[in-house]
Each structure stands twice: as C-alpha cells, then as structure tokens.
C-alpha cells in the first residue's frame, strides 16, 4: 500500500487439485483487466514473484490435512485483511474428508509402501475450523463467474451477490426439465447450493452435490424420495459422501443411512 494504491491479492494452496485457483487463469477475457485493478502479490501457480504481505485479499484453496498446514493457515490469516476460501476442499474439507469416516492409517498403507515417511492428520478439515473466514465460495470446482463477482465486490467494497438457494431454482430458471420427477433419476439438486448453473441436469444426469448443502437443506426428505425411486441405502451413503462429505447436513445424512445398511 505504499506507492501503489492497487490492492494486493494472494492465492494460497493447501490439500487440493489446483482446479479452483486455475479458475482465475481460466478467466481469459478478464484476467488482464483484473490485473489492472489488483496486484498479484503471491500466486505460485502463475508467477515467481513474491511480494511481501500483508495482503488485502487472500484466496485460500484446499483443506487442512497435515500438522504443518494446520500451522501455516494461521500465518496466512495473520497476513490477510480479507480471507476467502475457494472451493469444496477449503469450505468443507473436500473429497479428502472421506478419510474422516475411516482409519487414515489404512489409507496410507494402501497408497504408500513405506508409510513412516508420510505425515498426515486423521481428518481433512475446512479452513473455517482453524481460522476466521470472511467469505466462502462453494463448488468443486468454484464457478469462475462467482469468483469474478467476488473480486468485483471486493474491489468495490460491497457484499458479493452469491445466492444460497438450491440448484432446483437454476433448473427452473433455465427451463431444464426436472430429471428426478420426469425420469426418476436421483438428484441432489434440492439440497445443493446453486452456483454451477445446474449443469448436471442439463446434461441428463442428477446433481451430485459438488456445491455442498444449501441453506436449511431437508436431506432426510430427499433421501426418502430417493428410496421411493428404489435407491439403496449404501448408494445414498455414497451420494452424500463425496466432494462435501464433511459438511454437516451431508455428513449427518450419510451416517444415518450407514447405520441402516
């Protein structure tokens, strides 16, 4: 904030696939315009430059899965004015949270021949379990339109317009026929937060919940409907236990059906 008035952006990575931060580079039409208004101060995937903090806006990708990362996230928080988590891993623990339902030791031996070299935590946890988070962007991956909205809102000092209603609303708005009602295809749309623009139903498949639970989701009622369609308990467990498995409503619903298996 010395000679330049441009705010400083930092992009941080924890356990993740890099897809959400790639969304920023995928803003092909907007990327150069964005850099006119914001300084990319730390973004290792894209640049060797490291400009010292504090940072005005930190985007955090990935979940916390190692003792080292559990420490590092506090440093990130201390150096950030606004901290926004991007994507399912950072907001709910992501697919890595599948370990939270099992014994992680058995996972290490399944992947690595010499498990003693591997240092990892028993659980994969969202960033908000460790530090205060100013805002969260959902999705596996995030929507780049929502990312642009977030950056735009940040630059203009307003709240981002990110709806918390369900995917169903997007299907209705797009005029996509309901795959569950019309074709009996199990769909997580009624309990999943909008943001992807209801892609899956428009490709003739049920929503698989990658934006995580909407506000006040009735997962129990949806699971009942799935059962009426002939879906078995173990498939219901797997459906709720994917990219946002550790998000509380999804977690609860998957455990409920696990017991009845």
């Amino acid at each position: 904030m010395t000679k330049s008035r441009k705010p400083k952006l930092a992009v941080w990575k924890f356990a993740s696939c890099d897809g959400c931060q790639l969304s920023l580079l995928d803003c092909e039409d907007e990327l150069l315009a964005i850099t006119e208004h914001i300084t990319i101060a730390y973004f290792p995937e894209a640049t060797r430059t490291v400009i010292k903090g504090p940072y005005d806006l930190s985007l955090v990708e990935g979940s916390i899965t190692t003792p080292h990362d559990a420490e590092r996230i506090h440093q990130v928080r201390r150096s950030s004015k606004y901290l926004v988590t991007i994507g399912a891993c950072a907001t709910s623990g992501g697919i890595q949270a599948l370990r939270n339902f099992k014994d992680v030791k058995s996972f290490i031996t399944a992947v690595y021949p010499t498990p003693q070299f591997i240092e990892t935590l028993n659980k994969s946890t969202p960033i908000a379990d460790h530090v205060f988070v100013d805002f969260q962007l959902r999705g596996c991956p995030i929507s780049k339109h929502q990312l642009l909205e977030l950056v735009n809102a940040f630059l203009n000092g307003r709240k981002p317009n990110i709806p918390q209603y369900s995917v169903c609303i997007e299907c209705k708005r797009n005029g996509t026929q309901c795959v569950m009602v019309a074709e009996g295809v199990p769909c997580l749309g009624p309990v999943t937060q909008a943001g992807c623009n209801a892609i899956c139903p428009s490709y003739h498949r049920g929503c698989y919940g990658c934006f995580g639970p909407k506000e006040t989701p009735n997962t129990h009622s949806l699971a009942k409907q799935w059962k009426a369609l002939g879906i078995k308990d173990d498939d219901i467990v797997r459906a709720f236990r994917s990219y946002n498995a550790y998000a509380e409503p999804f977690q609860r619903e998957s455990i409920a059906h696990e017991k009845s298996v």
Partner: peptide, 17 residues
Amino acid sequence: EPPRFFEAFLRGRNFSE
C-alpha cells in the same frame, strides 16, 4: 504437497463414480 489418498478413497465406491 500433502499426501492425498485417492486409491484408498476409491475402494468401496461404485464403478460409475
């Protein structure tokens, strides 16, 4: 990069996933 246990997560999943 933190270890990520994909091969282990895949066990017990349905082929379609």
